[in-house]
Simulated assay, not measured.
Amino acid sequence: MKAYTISDKLVAWLAYVCIGLFVIAAIIPFMTIVSTSLTDEQYIRANGFDIFPHAITLDAYKYVLGRGSSILGAYQVTLFVTFAGTAFSLLLTTMMAFALSRREWRMSVPISFFVYFTMLFNGGIVPWYIVTTKYLHLYDSLAALIVPYTINAFNLIVLRSFFSTIDNAIFEAARIDGANDIKLLFNIALPLAMPGLATIGLFYSISYWNDWWLALMLVSDRELYPLQLLIRAITSNISYAASSGVNSSIAAAAIPKEGVKMATTVLTIGPIILLYPFLQRYFVKGLTIGSVKG
C-alpha cells in the first residue's frame, strides 16, 4: 500500500480548499438570486441584495406566473425545442463525427477542414436570414427554432476527436464478424462514447434552452415564443413602463421589478440545473469502456 507523505496530504488539502472556494463562489450568486426573488421590493430598495430572503413575499412569482397560458405555452415550446432539437442534433452530429473520424475515408480531412473553416468565417446575418426564410422557409415555425442549430462545428470536432480515441482494433474485429458501418456506429462506437455523447448533448440542450435569438429573428407568432424570449419581453416591458411617463411610472412602481427579474431567472435555470445530476456520472467514466485486452 502506498504511503502518503506530508506533501501529498498538503496538496490534497489545497485541492479541497480550492474546490470549496469555487463551490462557494458558484453558490452565493445563485442563493442571492433566489433570495431576491422572494424578498419584498421595498426591502430591496432600502437595503440592497442579500443571500438570505427578508420580508418574504411571492409577489414576483405571482406577477410572472400571472401570465398563465403565455408562460405555460412558452414552457411547452421550450421543452419541445430542447428535447427534439437535442435529439436531432445529437443524431446528425454523431453520424457526421463518426464518418469524419474514420481514417480510411479519403474525404474526412477535406470535410473536417470545411467544418473548421465555418468556425472562423461566416456569411453574416443578412445572408443567413435570406437562406433560412426564403430558401428553407423556416419563418414562424417550430423548425425555425431547431434547424439553424442542428450541427455545431465545435461540438462536431469535439465528438470526432472523441471517436478517434477509440481503438481501431475494436472496429476491425467487428468488421471481421460481418458488421457494416451502421452496426459499427450504433453497436460499437456509441456505447463506448457515452461520456462524449452526454457532454455534447448537454451543450446542445443548454444552447436550445437558453436561446431567444432565433425566435427574435424568425418568429412573429407569440404562441411560438420560447420561454427565454417571453421573459425577455416581460422584463423589457417593466423597464419601459418605469421610464415612460408619470402614469406609467406610478403603475410600474407597484411591480416588484428586481424580484421579477430574479424570479424569471429561477424559473428559466431551474429545469436545466436538474439535468446535471443525470449526466454527471458520464463525465468521470473512461473514454474506452470495455477496450481490447492484451
Rank of each mutant, 00 (worst) to 15 (best):
V17Q: 00
I255L: 13
L79K: 00
S70H: 00
L279H: 02
T36V: 11
I19N: 07
A26H: 01
M119W: 01
D181N: 10
Q76W: 11
W128F: 14
F186K: 06
S164L: 10
G123W: 01
T118V: 13
S141T: 15
Y16H: 12
Y43R: 15
H54W: 13
L274F: 10
D8G: 01
K293R: 14
E104Y: 06
A26Q: 09
R103C: 02
I111N: 04
Y135G: 07
L136S: 07
I125M: 10
V109K: 15
M107R: 12
W213G: 08
A143N: 15
M95Y: 07
A251R: 14
A253S: 15
L192G: 02
V81R: 05
Y208M: 02
Y43C: 08
F52T: 12
I273H: 03
I71C: 03
A251C: 08
A99R: 05
A198C: 10
K134F: 06
K285L: 14
I182T: 13
Q228S: 14
V109S: 14
A3K: 15
Y282F: 15
G68P: 04
F114M: 15
Q228I: 08
L58I: 11
K257Y: 14
A251M: 14
F113T: 12
T94E: 02
Y225E: 10
S164I: 09
V64A: 08
T268S: 15
T199Q: 09
I234H: 03
N168E: 14
P195L: 03
L275K: 00
I56K: 07
K134A: 11
I206S: 04
A174Y: 08
A25K: 07
P226Y: 01
V260D: 01
G123M: 08
T235V: 13
T235D: 05
K2E: 09
A153W: 04
F154I: 13
A84L: 07
Y204N: 08
V17K: 01
P29G: 05
T39H: 02
D59G: 04
A153F: 04
M119R: 00
L230R: 01
F162D: 04
D140V: 01
R67Q: 12
I170V: 15
V292G: 06
A242I: 00
L156S: 02
I130G: 04
A263R: 03
I234T: 05
V23G: 05
T93K: 08
P271R: 04
L279K: 04
I166L: 12
L275C: 00
Y225I: 06
G286I: 13
F49P: 00
A74H: 05
F121E: 10
I234Q: 04
L190C: 11
